[in-house]
Simulated assay, not measured.
Amino acid sequence: MTAAVSTIVITGAGAGIGRGTALHFAAQGWRVVGLDRDGAALKELGAMLPRGQALTLRCDVGREAAVQRAFARIAAWAPDGIACLVNNAGIADPHSGPLEDLSLKAWQGWIDSSLTAAFLCSRAALPLLRRVAGASVVNVASTRALQSEPDTYAYAAAKGGLCALTHAMAVGLGPAVRVNAVLPGWIETGPWQRADRAHEADHRPIDEAQHPAGRVGTVQDIATTIAWLVSPEAGFVTGQQIVVDGGMTRRMIYAE
């Protein structure tokens, strides 16, 4: 598998980690398919990607029919198959409010946008993944699958489900397809939003000091981790949860 002829599909590609990952892989010579339900963000992404090397499709990846239509287009565009699927889509805001006020509809929104979407896209992508030797799936979860703060019930459940789905898929789809999860911590995505929402980072010294690595994470930190996971160098890595958080989840914090 060589990057120059490989195709990657990224969900939630319009902004944030998805946008940064799409641009990273395009710079490495990959053909990039970006899925997102935000048409304006997708249009911006398409203008950033090399012409003829990218396909952007508006798609709500939590809806079965939409995913089926999108992957029919992808199969026509990349008939030789895809080397990687990155299930990155999800509602970015983790806060749902008190449990007693959390409606089923709101709960389902978090679950569908992340966990259900990963299931639907992985199922649809599987025939294309199996056409490429060394293919892999990367699920973008969160350190909130491992630890929580108040009022983040649905988000935590969705990301925890992604981690469980990861090892189940690794066992069920191997050895043909490797499956791993990346668990980002605090990642600054402000500069990677669409133009009318983009903003520069404004971190306090205490924000940086919370991380043993000495800084808040960047989109590039996640994109390069994904790039390693899908590379031949990670060929013996599957079913794993790779935490990328600057060491924040390993730091003991005491009440003062």
Rank of each mutant, 00 (worst) to 15 (best):
K159C: 01
V5C: 14
I222S: 12
R131N: 09
V5G: 15
D112H: 03
V137Q: 09
N88Q: 07
V216T: 13
P191K: 02
T166N: 13
R31N: 08
V61T: 09
L115C: 08
A117L: 04
E100M: 12
A154E: 07
A209H: 10
R251S: 02
A22M: 07
E64Q: 08
T116S: 06
A145D: 03
A47E: 14
V86E: 10
N180F: 00
G90E: 03
W192L: 10
G172N: 14
P205K: 01
E44M: 11
S96W: 00
L146F: 03
W228Q: 03
P50Y: 12
L120D: 00
L49H: 01
V9F: 07
R194L: 12
V140W: 00
A201D: 05
P175T: 05
S136H: 00
D245S: 09
S122Q: 10
P127L: 11
C163T: 13
R131K: 15
A124W: 07
A234T: 04
A157Q: 11
H95T: 15
V86H: 03
P150F: 13
A124Y: 03
M252Q: 11
A156P: 06
T56A: 01
G239K: 04
G160W: 07
A223K: 05
E188A: 15
W110K: 02
W228G: 06
R250I: 05
L102W: 05
G214A: 12
I206A: 15
A118H: 07
P150E: 13
G97N: 11
A124N: 06
N87G: 11
G34D: 02
P175V: 13
G174Q: 11
I111M: 06
Y254C: 13
R194H: 10
R51T: 14
L128D: 02
C84P: 08
Q53S: 15
L35P: 03
L129A: 05
R130Q: 15
W107A: 13
Q28E: 15
L35A: 02
W228N: 01
Q68S: 14
E208K: 14
A26W: 08
R144H: 12
P50S: 09
V137T: 11
A117S: 09
M48H: 09
T2A: 01
V237E: 00
H167Y: 10
V86S: 08
R251L: 14
V216G: 12
H95Y: 08
V243D: 07
M169T: 12
Y153L: 12
H24S: 04
A89Y: 03
L128I: 04
